[in-house]
Amino acid sequence: MDPIFMWDTLQRLLPGIPLMLQLVSLSLAVGFVLAVLVALARLSAFRPLSAAAAGYVFFFRGTPLLVQIFLIYYGLGQFPEIRDSFLWPFLRQPYWCAILAFTLNTGAYGSEIMRGGIQSVPWGQIEAARVCGMSGLLLMRRIILPIAVRQALPAYGNEMILMVKATSLASIITLMEVTGIAQKIIAETYRAVEVFVVAGSIYLLINFVLTRGVRALEWYLSPHLRDARQAAPATEAAALAH
C-alpha cells in the first residue's frame, strides 16, 4: 500500500463519478415511473396487461444484468432493421444503451417492490376514500401511492444501492465510469489491490450517503409514527454514533 499512489489513483477516479451519478439518477428516475406503471399493470384485472407485465418482470429478474446489457448493446446491433430505424441514434451510443438496460432492470425489480407496497395499503382506507367519492387517479394520487411509496421505501433504498453497484458494469460497454477508469489504471500499473481499495471506498461512500438520505426520507414521510418531541435525524453525528 503506497499512499502517494493511492492519492493519485483517487484523483484519476474522481472524474468518473459524474458519469456514474448520471447513470444512477437517470435510470432510477425513469425506472421508478416504469416500476409504478408495471406494478399497476400487474395488479390490473385486464389479463393480457397483467400477463405482459409478469413476463417482463420474469425475464429481467431471472437473468443477470450483464446479459441484459450485452443483449441491448451488442445484440440489437446485429439487426440491420434496428440500425436503420429511428431508435439507432440513441442505441448507437453506449451511454443510452446503459441507461436503457439499467432502467429496464430496475423497473422490473422496483415493480415487485411497489406491488408489495400497493398491496399493503389497508383495504379499509381505500373503502373510506371511495365512500368520500374518490376514485381512479384521485384515489391513486391521494391515498394509494403515498402509502405504498412509504411502505416500499426501505426496500426501494436497497434497490438504489444495487443500482449504484450495477453502474460498475457500464465499463464493459466502453463507458469510463469509476470501475472503467480503475481497470485502465490497473492496465497501466498492474497494482490491482490498491486501485480497487480506492475505487471500492468511493462506492462505499456514495452508498453510505444514499442510505442516510433514504433513512432521512423515511423519517420525513412518517410523521404519524414518531414522537412529536423527537428531533430530526439531520443530526448526522447522532446517526454516526449509532
Binding site: 451488442y74 446491433g77 440500425r83 448507437r92 464493459i172 469510463m176 485502465k184
Partner: peptide
C-alpha cells in the same frame, strides 16, 4: 477514443456503425 475488452467487440461495433 473508446476501449474494448476484446477485438471482436470493436468489430461488432464497427459493423453496427457505433
Amino acid at each position: 477514443v473508446r476501449s474494448y475488452k476484446t477485438t471482436e467487440q470493436h468489430d461488432l461495433d464497427i459493423t453496427a456503425g457505433r
